[in-house]
């Protein structure tokens, strides 16, 4: 597998080796932080912490404040100050020490901001310079990263010639150029095909197993479930719930759900045996901890008009943030 020698290469191209995480230490500590844009309070009193080497996910509908929360960590968006809120990233406050934080972090933004006037390899060379990486070290590191993100053949290409998936992989490679201890990814796989998505997941898992702390936002519940040790669901700038993905599902939603697509097929009576949730359109969801209850119900419905399944993170998400559009 490509990239299987990441640890070795890390030693060879040592930029930040002296700072490998110690177990149990905190990478990110956020304490009742708020952020206002004119009238809008985009982030309200949010707190969370991420231990070193963990993967932490921020979930929430558009406008929940996820991106703003991330930008506050590395100085792109200054938090409301003076206010009691506090942010520490590896012990540094982004209001005072954004450079120290950025020096050991890799940022993968939501918008593609590659330098379209430069080729793939030039993008990486120039970016290495921003971190003060020596040219010879950068060359070696870039070869390795292009291979890691499976872009070696594209190294001389112009940015405009790359597909969306290649650009995304290049941005991730760029974020890894300084061998970061923290990788911040804002919707890393939005709009990508399943092959690229799975490739990126593999790479992120590899990085995590190498001790890189990962903070990501996503709209894909499967992505969150697969990658994250802990999740925080945000809504309208506030934290709604936080926990390990499996715990969130176990603690916040009934175990099974019956989705009914065509309510003309049969009556749905109100009952204390299940909880009814109406979705937009004609879809109705019935939640229960007892699969037998739901199975019994399906007998009255015409085949193809329903779907009985285990509940998942998306059900929790919808329950927490509501089924209405948030825009």
């Amino acid at each position: 597998m490509t990239g299987s020698n990441f640890s070795q290469s890390r030693k060879k191209n040592s930029f930040t080796d002296d700072h490998r995480p110690g177990i149990g230490e905190t990478a990110i500590a956020v304490n009742s932080v708020s952020k206002s844009f004119k009238e809008l309070r985009a982030v309200k009193n949010v707190s969370f912490s991420v231990p070193r080497g963990a993967c932490f996910g921020l979930l929430g509908p558009n406008g929940a404040g996820k991106t703003t929360m991330m930008k506050m960590l590395y100085g792109k968006s200054p938090r409301d100050n003076p206010e009691p809120g506090q942010i520490r990233v590896f012990g540094y406050d982004p209001l005072d020490n954004e450079l120290e934080i950025k020096q050991v972090s890799g940022i993968v933004p939501q918008d593609d901001n590659l330098d379209v006037e430069l080729s793939v390899i030039q993008n990486l060379m120039i970016y290495a310079r921003f971190y003060g990486i020596k040219k010879s070290d950068a060359g070696e590191r870039i070869d390795y990263l292009l291979e890691f993100m499976e872009l070696t053949e594209k190294s001389r290409s112009r940015i405009r010639e790359l597909s969306g998936g290649m650009r995304r992989r290049l941005i991730i490679a760029r974020a890894l150029i300084n061998n970061p201890m923290l990788l911040v990814l804002d919707e890393p796989t939005t709009g990508l095909d399943p092959q690229v998505r799975h490739l990126i997941w593999d790479k992120l898992r590899k990085l995590r197993s190498d001790g890189v702390t990962i903070l990501l936002t996503t709209h894909y519940m499967e992505e969150a479930f697969q990658l994250c040790d802990r999740l925080m669901i945000m809504h309208l700038g506030q934290t709604i719930m936080e926990g390990a993905p499996a715990d969130l599902v176990r603690d916040n939603i009934e175990r099974f759900v019956l989705e009914i697509y065509d309510s003309n097929c049969g009556e749905i009576a109100v009952s204390k045996n299940y909880r009814i949730e109406k979705s937009g359109g004609s879809r109705t969801l019935l939640y229960s901890d007892r699969i037998a209850v739901l199975e019994k119900l399906t007998e009255k419905f015409c085949s193809g008009g329903f779907y009985l399944r285990q509940s998942n993170l998306e059900d929790v998400f919808m329950k927490a943030t509501g089924r209405d559009l948030n825009e």
């Binding site: 792109k76 450079l99 950025k102 940022i107 918008d111 901001n113 590659l114 921003f130 971190y131 300084n178």
Partner: peptide
Amino acid sequence: FDKVYDGMISASIT
């Protein structure tokens, strides 16, 4: 348009 600045200040650049 190109958002090049956003990319640059994500690295160790103020």
